[in-house]
Computed example of a mutant assay.
Amino acid sequence: MDAVLSLRGLHKTYRLGRHTVPALQGVDLDVFPGEMLALTGPSGSGKSTLLNLAGLIDTPDAGQITFNGQAMTGLHDTARTLLRRDAIGFIFQSFNLVPVMTVADNVDYPLFLAKVPAAQRRERVRQALERVGLQAHAEHLPDALSGGQRQRVAIARALVKWPKLVIADEPTASLDSHTADQVLGLMRELCHAQGAAFLMATHDARAVRRCDRVITLEDGLLVANIHTTEGQTA
Rank of each mutant, 00 (worst) to 15 (best):
L5K: 04
S6K: 14
L7W: 04
R8D: 11
L10R: 01
L10T: 00
L16D: 15
G17V: 05
G17E: 05
H19R: 15
H19S: 14
V21L: 14
P22G: 00
A23Y: 12
G26E: 11
V27Q: 05
D28L: 09
L29R: 00
D30M: 07
D30L: 08
F32P: 00
F32L: 13
G34I: 07
L39M: 08
T40K: 00
T40D: 03
G41A: 13
P42C: 06
S43P: 11
S43C: 12
G46T: 07
G46P: 07
G46L: 06
G46W: 04
K47Y: 00
S48A: 08
L51D: 03
N52R: 05
L53F: 02
L53W: 00
A54M: 12
A54K: 09
L56A: 00
I57V: 15
D58T: 04
T59C: 07
Q64G: 12
I65M: 05
G69Y: 11
Q70M: 09
A71C: 07
A71S: 15
T78A: 12
A79H: 05
L82W: 09
R84Y: 01
R84C: 01
R85T: 04
A87N: 13
I88Y: 12
G89N: 03
G89Y: 06
F90W: 12
F92I: 08
F92L: 10
F92Q: 06
N96I: 10
N96Y: 14
L97V: 02
V98H: 12
P99A: 12
T102G: 13
V103H: 02
A104F: 11
K115N: 13
V116T: 15
V116L: 06
V116D: 07
A118I: 10
A119F: 03
E123Q: 15
A128P: 10
E130G: 06
V132I: 12
L134R: 09
A136H: 15
H137Y: 07
P142T: 08
P142S: 04
D143G: 12
L145N: 09
G148W: 09
Q149V: 01
R150S: 00
V153Y: 01
A154G: 15
I155Y: 00
A156Q: 06
L159M: 15
L165F: 11
E170G: 05
L175N: 01
D176S: 09
H178I: 12
T179I: 10
A180R: 09
D181T: 14
L186K: 00
M187Y: 00
E189K: 14
C191M: 04
C191A: 06
A193S: 11
G195K: 05
G195Q: 04
A196D: 03
A196K: 00
L199G: 02
H203Q: 03
D204H: 15
A205K: 14
A205P: 11
R206A: 14
A207W: 08
V208T: 03
R209M: 10
D212K: 02
D212F: 10
R213H: 06
I215V: 15
L217G: 02
E218V: 12
D219N: 09
V223M: 13
A224Q: 13
I226N: 10
G231M: 04
G231R: 04
Q232N: 08
A234V: 10
A234N: 08
A234W: 07
